[in-house]
């Protein structure tokens, strides 16, 4: 497969970052029911403050309104969606079909993921598919786009044009292979990277330094993942309970140092300070703001971070 990661797509997000601006994305989790308006409400809260909106795909293996349908709704509202796709629930036939469907609605961003194990979710007795993994999904999307072929080799007349993204967790173990694994995904065709939420800035910078040393930041756009802390309780939960999360004690202490009713405000402030600090870090090309069930705060963060208004591109 080709290693050319600079393939141009109609993606606005791609154009903004290719033009040298910081990209800004946020995400919206679809409801655990058929009420599509919830998606629209969330999209409305953030749509004007970000370049594209990620729509999660049965996140944490909990059944939700499907990512593809939610993306179509967002697209129809005039915003730009990022179709998240996990390889847990569908085999290569289902996934390629969904990619074609998405493209037919003018969806041009995809985030390719393996997905959390179903044992975490609401259907732990389900079979898992994992016909492909995230890297292979990236390869697949790239092949469909660049070679206009399905995995079977069938040549399409009209191919999907996807700006291909993936996730990276700079904090998971073993740390030493994290950059290698990113390199592997980029080698497979990833064009933008959304990182796990960052709290340990030192470790992130160390990782970023390695990314830059290997020149990976020139092959793909690295978007720093940020999640504002709502409270001290949330910080402690993230530190102790969420796998792959690295919350240093300094974060806990800072939140503990303010009264309970001011903690949310402090959390937003910390997030904004992070954006300002990360803007100076070489290789960081954008921000992915995951305000979990707190979408209304995204505008404040984007503004505070000096990222508003969003640039216009053709």
């Amino acid at each position: 497969m080709s290693t050319n990661n600079s393939a141009k797509t109609p993606s606005k997000l791609q154009k903004i970052m290719d033009a040298g601006h910081f990209g800004v994305t946020s995400e919206c989790g679809p409801p655990r029911g058929a009420d599509g308006r919830i998606v629209e409400e969330k999209a409305n809260l953030i749509g004007d403050y970000v370049d594209a909106i990620n729509v999660t795909d049965n996140q944490t293996a909990v059944v939700r309104l499907c990512s593809l349908a939610a993306c179509i709704r967002i697209k129809q509202m005039g915003f730009e969606p990022i179709l998240q796709m996990v390889s847990r629930d569908r085999n290569r036939i289902g996934m390629q079909a969904d990619i074609l469907g998405a493209a037919s609605f003018g969806i041009h961003n995809m985030l390719c993921l393996t997905g959390d194990h179903q044992s975490f979710g609401d259907h732990p007795t389900a079979v898992n598919v994992f016909d492909l993994d995230s890297t292979q999904l990236i390869q697949t999307v790239k092949m469909m786009r660049d070679e206009k072929k399905l995995l079977s080799g069938f040549e399409m007349k009209v191919a999907p044009e996807m700006f291909i993204g993936c996730a990276a967790n700079p904090f998971a173990d073993p740390f030493e292979i994290r950059v290698a694994r990113l390199a592997k995904k980029i080698a497979a065709g990833a064009q933008f990277i959304q990182t796990q939420c960052i709290y340990n800035m030192d470790k992130f910078k160390l990782w970023m330094q390695q990314v830059v040393d290997r020149g990976l930041h020139e092959k793909a756009h690295i978007m720093a993942g940020l999640t504002p802390m709502k409270s001290l309780g949330m910080a402690k939960y993230m530190k102790n309970k969420v796998p792959g999360m690295d919350v240093p004690d300094s974060v806990i202490e800072r939140l503990a140092g303010v009264p309970k009713d001011k903690q949310a405000e402090e959390g937003i402030k910390m997030c904004i300070e992070q954006i300002q600090e990360l803007k100076e870090v070489e290789g960081v090309r954008g921000f992915h703001i995951m305000a979990i069930e707190w979408e209304e705060k995204v505008p404040e963060i984007v503004k505070g971070g000096g990222l508003y208004p969003r640039p216009k591109v053709d």
Partner: peptide, 20 residues
């Protein structure tokens, strides 16, 4: 690998242990 990944490990790996 709990997810039979061909290109692992996933982001859930922690201290050499699986996320599950």
């Amino acid at each position: 690998c709990s997810k039979r990944m061909a290109n692992g490990p996933c982001g859930g790996s922690s201290s050499g242990k699986c996320e599950i």
